[in-house]
Design a protein around this nucleic acid. Structure first.
Length: 613
RNA sequence: GGCCCCGUGGUGUAGCGGUCUAACAUGCCACCCUGUCACGGUGGAGAUCAGGGGUUCAAAUCCCCUCGGGGUCGCCA
């Protein structure tokens, strides 16, 4: 496969049981001048001047320039002319101050260089399938197929190092607060609710299957019953659902659970952990302190979503009352059908062209709206309007609408009339779209936000059942327990989310610790007593034996690091991610298995063609 | 399962009915070059324009199908 004649490799300069290097490339500074060093690493870039060869040598710690001069080391120089990118080399030489005027301020090691005396090629390399020394976009197929090369890029190395430091910090922080890290099993029992399970067939119990954990929820609650009091785990979780830029089939959570606490304890702990984490690993980023808190209801009203990006304004405003006074049929129809009329005010976009408006209307309709009402305010006069509904709304009504939004000259109002969830969804999408267009998202700000006071339940029209907002172990608010029997929709849950810059980073709750209440919730969710017993029997039994009040939170490590690193996809912070079809592009997993393997598991495939052999 | 975007030398892009015998940058190969650092210079090789079918006098370009990659809705308690 080599696209270049293989160069035979040389014996290392210092063979034997010690490292082939005594310094890293990135660490060399002025203080090393005069030292004889041995380095090993990859050829990052070469500059062959004919009479002299410069190589940027790269290892995990950084890059240093090494110089081959035929007058000081003829043999090394001659070998150096044959070096190519990504060759693995080892060399020894003296660290020297660069000649006056040739320092490179772009390199941390730029004041020095290594004057090479001996060179060994430890392993040559074909030309890589993409640039390793430049951070240009590469087809995702190549990134994943040649993952081991993609990871050589400095950005990916930084991301993995950041990931390490984040996890290390979390472990140290929670250790310092008296938490014990406890491992829980990966092979557990499947339960049908929630996400789809990854199943693992059992050879010793033919016809039966384990499931991989979607999260260690029941296990960590049992650890509270066991008296662990403070548990955490850097836990791998598995969900067999469709992927997104921020969703992989296996992902990592910092799973935390505490006994004898209420909401405030968990929120305080989370806030302290994240503020000190940010100060430690990315001190250049700012935060809003203390973390702003929004109730679920407040978040929906002001931002139309339960994971708002509060780095910018453009908050939603309700104009249903004004809409009722207009002659605009669309508004009236929507309100009559139980809807609302709400909108956002986009600063400075009043001069948007017909084409730009059409783009926004397209975004609105593709997200479920039937249309979008726009009101442009003239940049000359705050009472001069252009609108798609100008015929149906009076000047006075337009003025009161503009006043409702605190709109100024040159602003653009985007108004949606529909059912509340459609209105909220569309305005959330438009709000984020306009923030991107206007560059309102401050990259140096981490706007952590707690969302609290979620409803416990949500009616599902499709299944004609109550769904839980979080999971079925979340406790209802004490004062709402009586409502469970006659007004479940009004019951508040002791559930909270951590949101940052529009991403949900964590989710947790205070749990139920009494069997009776837990059973009541299961029943409300539509489980029969047989189902409850079969799926949750041992868990419910555990609650009977002196389960302490407890609660916790699960924090998404991948998303946290993605945001910290400024990446658009969690694939950039995971060493070996899967593609959109959940395929491992390096090893080609999942794959067919042999007839023998299936026989051992007493499995038959419906479509026999997909068996190997 | 739905919708959207993408697929052109190794890589990243341009070209969007005729000027394409496919352009540019970089990489690759050869030669020159002793202070460069995205070194520079000269020359060269390298693409059945993802695959298949269709429309047309003419297709990288328009249409359909398939494959592959990405985004998103549903889904993710």
């Amino acid at each position: 496969m080599s696209n270049r004649p293989a160069l035979s490799y040389n014996e290392p300069i210092y063979p034997g049981g010690v490292l082939l290097k005594d310094h890293s490339c990135g660490e060399l500074r002025k203080q090393h001048i005069g030292q004889e060093v041995t380095l090993a690493g990859w050829v990052h870039r070469r500059r062959d001047h004919g009479g002299m060869v410069f190589i940027d040598l790269r290892d995990r710690e950084g890059i240093v320039q090494v110089v081959f001069n035929p007058q000081t080391a003829q043999q090394a120089y001659e070998v150096a002319t044959s070096l190519r990118n990504e060759y693995v080399i080892q060399l020894s030489g003296e660290v020297t101050l660069r000649p006056r005027g040739t320092a490179n301020a772009n390199l941390d090691t730029g004041e020095v260089e290594v004057s090479v005396k001996k060179l060994a090629v430890l392993n040559p390399s074909p030309t890589p399938p993409f640039y390793i020394n430049e951070d240009v976009d590469v087809d995702e197929l190549l990134c994943l197929k040649y993952r081991y090369l993609y990871l050589r890029r400095q950005r990916l190395q930084r991301n993995l190092a950041l990931r390490h430091r984040v996890i290390k910090f979390i472990r140290d922080f929670l250790d310092g607060r008296g938490f014990l890290e406890v491992e829980t099993p990966i092979l557990i029992k499947s339960t049908p609710e929630g996400a789809r399970d990854y199943l693992v067939p059992s050879r010793l119990n033919l016809g039966k299957f384990y499931a991989l954990p979607q999260s260690p929820q029941q296990l960590k609650q049992m650890l509270m019953v066991s008296g662990l009091e403070r548990y955490f785990q850097i836990a791998r979780c598995f969900r067999d659902e469709d992927l997104r830029a921020d969703r992989q089939p296996e992902f990592t959570q910092c799973d935390v659970e505490m006994s004898f606490v209420d909401e405030e304890d968990i929120l305080q702990l989370t806030e302290e952990m994240f503020t000190s984490l940010v100060k430690e690993v990315i001190p250049q980023k700012r935060m809003l302190l203390p973390f702003p808190r929004l109730t679920y209801r407040e978040a929906m009203e002001r931002y139309g979503t339960d994971k708002p990006d509060i780095r910018f304004g453009m908050e939603l405003r309700d104009i249903t009352d004004i809409a009722l006074q207009t002659e605009f049929d669309i508004f009236h129809a929507a309100i009559k059908a139980g809807g609302t009329v709400r909108g956002i005010c986009v600063p400075g976009c009043g001069s948007y062209t017909r084409h730009q408006m059409d783009e926004l209307i397209g975004q609105a309709t593709s997200n479920g709206a039937r249309g979008l009402t726009t009101v442009s305010i003239s940049s000359e006069s705050s009472t001069s309007f252009k609108s798609t509904a100008l015929k149906h709304i009076t000047q006075a009504q337009l003025e009161s609408i503009a006043a409702r939004f605190d709109a100024r000259q040159g602003d653009l109002l985007l108004i949606v009339a529909d059912k509340p969830d459609v209105v909220n969804n569309v305005l959330d999408v438009l709000r984020r779209e306009m923030a991107d267009r206007l560059n309102l998202r401050d990259k140096n700000l981490l706007a952590f936000t707690f969302i609290t006071d979620f409803p416990l339940l949500q009616w599902n029209d499709a299944t004609n059942k109550w769904d839980v907002m979080h999971h079925p172990f979340t406790a209802p608010k004490d004062e709402d327990i009586a409502l469970l029997d006659f007004d479940p929709a009004s019951v508040g849950g002791r559930h909270y989310d951590l949101v940052c810059n529009g991403s949900e980073l964590g989710s947790g709750s205070i749990r139920m610790h009494h069997r009776q209440l837990q059973e009541k919730i299961f029943t409300l969710l539509g489980y029969s007593s047989e189902e409850i017993n079969q799926q949750f029997g041992p868990f419910l039994a555990a609650l009977e034996y002196g389960a302490p009040p407890h609660g916790g939170i699960a924090l998404g490590i991948d998303r946290t690091i993605m945001i910290f690193a400024g990446e658009q996809s969690i694939r950039e912070v995971i060493a070996f991610p899967k593609n959109q079809n959940a395929v491992d592009m390096i090893f080609d997993a999942p794959s067919v298995v042999t007839r023998q393997q299936l026989d051992e598991l007493n499995l038959t495939l419906k479509n026999k063609q997909i068996v190997k052999g």
